[in-house]
Amino acid sequence: MDRDQFTQSLSFVTKALGGAHPTRLCGGLLLGIILSGVISAFAETFPHNALLVAFGGASAVFYVAVGIFIFFLPLFLRRTSMSESNRNYLELIDTVTDKAGLTKSAKRVYWTQLLDKMLDAFKPKGENLVDTEEAVNRVAED
C-alpha cells in the first residue's frame, strides 16, 4: 500500500467514524465520558438498585458510543429540504407548464426529460466531481 492509498483509506475511515462532523463527534465523546462517570457514581451510591448496578458495570466504550449516537441522532432524523433558490426554480417551471396548457401526460414527459438532464449534469466527469451550481447552470442552458 503506497502513501496515497494509505491517505485515502485513512480519510475514508475518518469520515465513516464521524470525522465530517467533528463538533458532534467531540460532543458525543464528552457526553459519553460524563454519562459513564455519572452512572458509575449512582451505581456505587445506590447498590440496591439492580438497573443502576447493571449499567454501572458497562464499559466506558459503551457510554461513548451512546453519547456519539445521541449527538448524531438529529442528523439521522431531520428531513433534508432543498434550498430556496431550487424550490423557486421548480415552482417557476410548474407555473410555466401550467400556463402553457400542457396535458398531464405532457407535463410528466417534460418533467422526466428535465430530470434526465439534471441527472446527466450531475454525473461526475472522470475523477473530478461536478459542482452543484455548475450542474444547475448546465441544465438551465439546455
Results as ranks from 00 to 15, higher is better:
Ala58Cys: 06
Glu134Lys: 15
Asn49Ser: 10
Leu17Met: 11
Lys123Ser: 13
Leu77Arg: 14
Trp111Thr: 02
Ala121Trp: 11
Glu141Arg: 08
Lys123Met: 14
Thr112Lys: 15
Gly101Gln: 05
Phe122Leu: 15
Ala54Asn: 12
Met82Asn: 09
Leu77Phe: 12
Lys107Ser: 03
Asp4Arg: 13
Leu31Glu: 13
Gly57Val: 00
Lys107Leu: 05
Ala65Met: 10
Phe72Ala: 08
Asp98Trp: 01
Val139Gly: 05
Thr7Lys: 15
Phe46Ser: 09
Asp120Tyr: 05
Gln113Tyr: 05
Met82Ala: 06
Asp120Trp: 03
Ser9Leu: 10
Thr112Leu: 13
Ser40Arg: 11
Ala43Tyr: 03
Gly126Gln: 02
Leu129Met: 06
Ile39Tyr: 09
Gln5Lys: 10
Ser85Cys: 05
Leu52Asp: 06
Ala41Asp: 04
Leu119Met: 13
Asn86His: 04
Ala100Leu: 14
Lys99Met: 00
Ile93Asn: 00
Tyr110Asn: 15
Leu10Gly: 13
Arg138Phe: 02
Phe42Leu: 15
Asp120Phe: 07
Leu129Gln: 14
Val139Asp: 06
Leu10Ala: 13
Leu90Pro: 00
Ser81Glu: 07
Leu30Ser: 07
Pro47Met: 05
Ala135Glu: 00
Asp120Val: 06
Leu92Phe: 06
Cys26Trp: 03
Thr112His: 08
Met82Ile: 13
Leu51Met: 14
Gly101Tyr: 06
Lys15Thr: 01
Ile34Asn: 03
Trp111His: 02
Ala54Met: 08
Ala60Val: 15
Gly28Lys: 01
Asp142Ser: 10
Ala135Trp: 03
Asp94Pro: 01
Gly27Pro: 00
Phe42Gly: 13
Ala41Cys: 10
Ala100Lys: 11
Ala121Asn: 13
Gly27Cys: 13
Phe71Lys: 02
Val96Gln: 06
Met1Thr: 04
Ile70Val: 15
Leu52Met: 09
Thr45Met: 13
Lys123Tyr: 12
Phe76Leu: 11
Ala106Glu: 12
Gly19Tyr: 07
Ile39Ser: 05
Ala50Pro: 08
Leu31Asp: 09
Met118Ser: 10
Ile34Ser: 02
Leu29Val: 10
Pro74Asp: 01
Ala106Cys: 02
Val136Ser: 02
Ala135Asp: 04
